[in-house]
Design a protein around this nucleic acid. Structure first.
Lengths: 335, 335
DNA sequence: CTGTTAGCGCATTCAA
DNA sequence: TTGAATGCGCTAACAG
């Protein structure tokens, strides 16, 4: 039904090679015939069929973006960064949201394929050794964002230091009873985000000579609601913490919600600090650790384009800074 | 580099037709050869090249989702609904974010093509007559969400009624000075969302015999910040409104922010009502008009799949209800 | 400068 | 039940 290159060629009275040449500027064409072709293209509203093109060129002009926890604002902001640079390019973007482990495995097995996509942008997930073998064998450019691997270009964010900074801030304010609310330390996806931030938390406490208190640690599935529930438990302890460091802003919002429900004043009776600095954090005046989410998405695609355009060269990973943003949810403890 | 169907055929000692048959169950195959093929597939980690497949079958197994204002939480929630059903299907999803008018036009011109995608899901945007002609000529299934067109299947949301309900609520509380903060009534994308909600606003006022006051209307670009600025202006009026109906929750958040900055008590001195019921609305206890965002995304794809699977039949549009959700930002006026 | 042809990887028909 | 041949729409090499 749609016009093909043959239709255009016939209408312009030329061969298909000429049409292709005009469209791709792949070889010089006489200006007169060039115009004939162009008007035929216009009249037929012709646009080359991408599948034909891909098959012939061996490139898909498509990149896949793999995103776990798509419900989280932080992931969406990263994606936003990606979209902004994709829009300026002539690449298409294939979106893969992963919510379950089987889904994750299926995606890692089927998506990184030459002929399917030209590159892979993976958020927050660690490829297994098997995944890596496939990626290497298929020789498909792959960039990690918010995780890292020695063999793969990536946008690195130092979670350990980020978390440490946050907790150090609380300690400097005078807190000694500091809770940590997070995702499961060994999450089913093999992510090490929770663990790294936990490490930073531990180091900050250790540096201040504060022993770890298991009561002050809770883990649950990513969500504001879970954050709220865990906070309830923690605040109902006989000796509740005076401050809570949340794994993410999402969790931190749940903490704030719980505090509100329990009439616990923030930051008077409870200091709260989040992680990510999603847009909303500013709105609720949440003290948090900024991740430059949008920028991480932008740099991720940039790195990926580099990898795609310079085969045999693995772009050097980039490290992105993380910084404490002090707003209105942290203060010295009541006494 | 990646294995092709020929590699598999050779390794299994069969013809490529047989391999294809096994993979697609397209014709009966002897169990023994079937097993030979299957193990060859396994050993070579073979997955058919989508481009070859698409070219041969004339279907892409891909749908495009066109999303304006991707920065808005409401749009992301819709997309979330879409992703949840896509994940269960064997379709790929191509994402197109539109932020500018030229971008919009380019996308409408190049994306709705057979051979490019099997279907089109459009959020919040109205196709022009020219767009429609192309869609028809290319015979490409297209579903509209949050807008409507008599010739296209769509998920319809009655903005006029939704807005009217919201403003009626304010009037019933006793308000007579009610502001409307929105996107531009004639937005450059040709959307009529702002205008429809404005219509509902006007009708509610009219029904109560309250004259329209131009001072109580402000328009600006979608964003919390714009909402904040417009609210500043409005609250600085000699005779400021006692209630504000915002075009979206996003704007409403800006209103709340402005009120907070000006020390105007909500809902004591100012009632605020939004539109959409994004997840965040519940968190800030915003009274709003619920849109069932996620569900609208889900139903949108469902309709699209229907359209794809039953050619020649245009699925009947679906109407989704809209409902007032009263929370903590609305109350009777101070005096 | 331009027309013709081969081949990209696959599904599918036609023979056998 | 299966192998070989054809064509999907395109780019690029080849031949003029």
């Amino acid at each position: 039904m749609p016009a093909t290159i043959h239709d255009v060629a016939k209408r312009a009275g030329v061969g298909i090679g000429t049409v292709s040449s005009v469209l791709n500027n792949s070889r010089p064409v006489n200006e007169a015939t060039r115009q004939k072709v162009l008007s035929a293209v216009d009249e037929l509203d012709f646009i080359p069929n991408p599948s034909g093109r891909r098959l012939s060129m061996g490139k898909t002009h498509t990149i896949a973006v793999v995103i776990p926890f798509f419900t989280l604002a932080s992931q969406v902001e990263r994606l936003r960064g990606v979209m902004s640079v994709i829009a300026e390019s002539d690449y298409d973007i294939n979106l893969f949201a992963v919510e379950t482990v089987p889904q994750r495995n299926r995606i890692f097995q089927t998506v990184p394929r030459r002929g399917r996509v030209d590159g892979l942008l993976i958020f927050s997930l660690n490829p297994t050794e098997a995944d890596l073998r496939r990626i290497r064998r298929q020789d498909i450019p792959t960039v990690l964002v918010e995780t890292s691997h020695p063999d793969l270009p990536h946008i690195f964010l130092d979670d350990v230091v980020g978390a440490q900074t946050a907790v150090k801030h609380l300690i400097e304010l005078g807190h000694r009873k500091i809770g940590y609310i997070s995702d499961h330390l060994d999450d089913p996806f093999g992510t090490n985000l929770s663990r790294n931030r936990y490490l930073g938390y531990g180091r900050a406490l250790e540096a201040a000579g504060i022993p770890l208190n298991p009561d002050y640690q809770r883990q649950g599935w990513h969500s504001r609601e879970q954050g709220r529930l865990m906070t309830f438990e923690m605040l109902n302890l006989p000796d509740p913490p005076t401050a809570i460091f949340a794994f993410s802003d999402e969790f931190a919002l749940g903490v704030l919600e719980a505090a509100r429900d329990l009439n616990v004043d923030v930051p008077g009776d409870l200091s709260v600090i989040g992680y990510d600095d999603i847009e909303l954090a500013r709105f609720v005046q949440l003290t948090t650790v900024r991740q430059h989410l949008i920028e991480s998405g932008i740099q991720g695609v940039e790195l990926l384009f580099e990898a795609i355009n310079t085969p045999d060269i693995i772009p050097t990973p980039r490290q992105m800074s993380t910084e404490l943003v002090i707003r209105a949810t942290t203060a010295p403890p009541a006494r």
